[in-house]
């Protein structure tokens, strides 16, 4: 199995938590066990869009209890003899191997997953930042030999990239240190926010410079936050930034 595998370095490993829960996209070759009409395959595949009940396969790394997973889309790309090429967008924790098997059962002919490639993990895709082993090896040795910083920077992305799909709230400089010490975010600390936040949604708190301060849970919707002038707006779950990056401003009669 190949494809997109974001690897977080050192202190960036904190963002893995957010990344593990994000959706994935795969391109997969499903092999049918008998020749089947294309139309029939397409019809059955479309039935697999939506919420699915899945029991993880025997050889899996999680507890084998029945769980519900959402398949956002299941696109039929091509079919050659008994091989079907698919593109699947799904929630994290969906087993594609299991979907292929189940599609085979519904078709009545049996099927299995032949090949799989992940084309997306949350915000990470097969774009120009997607690097191979060889790219990494080349750039690292180039950096070691010539101390050319740029070659190392080329293969690494700032951890903020991993939080791109989360709704963002930008906060005041004076609120950053408080949040980084674990405080909840209050309404006056908010400068701007994105639409579509609902109460209890996971959000990311950003500084004006675009650095991530913390991973948080919203305590109100976007609409409500916009009109609030006091009170808690978000509950800090995980601090990402070093505590002493911004100066402490609380208790000094400032805005927070």
């Amino acid at each position: 199995m190949t494809g997109v595998l974001p690897v977080a370095l050192e202190d960036a490993t904190k963002v893995v938590q957010a990344l593990l829960l994000s959706g994935k996209e795969y391109v997969c070759v499903m092999r049918l066990h008998k020749k089947t009409a294309e139309e029939k395959v397409k019809t059955v595949l479309s039935e697999f869009q939506g919420r699915l009940l899945q029991r993880p396969p025997i050889r899996s790394s999680v507890k084998r209890r029945l769980r519900i997973r959402t398949v956002y889309y299941m696109d039929f790309l091509e079919m050659q003899q008994r091989d079907v090429l698919l593109k699947i967008g799904c929630e994290s924790g969906t087993y594609i191997r299991k979907i292929c098997f189940d599609v085979g059962e519904v078709l009545g002919c049996g099927a299995h997953m032949h090949e799989l490639r992940r084309t997306r993990a949350g915000p990470f895709t097969e774009d120009e930042n997607h690097v191979t082993f060889y790219d990494v090896l080349y750039c690292v040795s180039k950096w070691r030999e010539s101390e050319d910083e740029e070659s190392l920077r080329k293969i690494i992305l700032p951890m903020e990239k991993a939080l791109e799909l989360l709704p963002k709230v930008h906060i005041r400089d004076s609120a950053v240190a408080a949040v980084c010490h674990g405080a909840h975010l209050t309404a006056p600390g908010v400068l701007s926010l994105e639409t579509g936040i609902e109460k209890d949604d996971e959000i990311a708190l950003f500084t004006q410079k675009g650095e991530v301060a913390a991973f948080a849970r919203a305590l109100a919707s976007s609409k409500k936050i916009l009109t609030m002038d006091h009170g808690f707006v978000a509950e800090t779950i995980r601090v990402m930034m070093d505590r002493d990056t911004y100066p402490k401003m609380w208790g000094k009669g400032g805005n927070t």
Partner: peptide
């Protein structure tokens, strides 16, 4: 984030690896 000194850039970095 893009202007962090190299040491911090690596420490707070992610590699989008093609496995």
């Amino acid at each position: 984030p893009e202007e962090r000194p190299l040491k911090d850039y690596v420490r707070l970095g992610i590699v989008n690896l093609d496995k």
